[in-house]
């Protein structure tokens, strides 16, 4: 389990948990970032913003939140 902020771009990740407040996790869920969901990290670098993509959806996540979204790397691609 690592923060999204530490994941290289090109990896596929599974969302495990959020370590941010209720409002923020609610926002993530409404945008479709849900525990157990898999996403491709299509853009991302340490300290930078991240893009999680799932085929049709693309969600941009700032560096701050990327530290608080905990993920598991599924495969490298």
């Amino acid at each position: 389990m690592v923060p999204l902020a530490f994941v290289e771009s090109g990896s596929e990740v599974e969302i495990l948990d959020f370590r941010c407040g209720g409002k923020c996790s609610c926002r993530l869920r409404e945008l479709g970032i849900v525990k157990g969901c898999r996403y491709l990290v299509s853009t991302g670098a340490k300290n930078g913003p991240f893009i999680l993509s799932d085929g049709e959806t693309r969600i941009g996540i700032g560096a701050g939140i990327a530290m608080k979204v905990l993920v598991r790397e599924v495969a490298c691609g």
Partner: peptide, 11 residues
């Protein structure tokens, strides 16, 4: 603090 960024990026 600065409010965090989470936003949808349309294709």
């Amino acid at each position: 603090a600065v409010s965090p960024l989470v936003m949808e990026l349309p294709a």
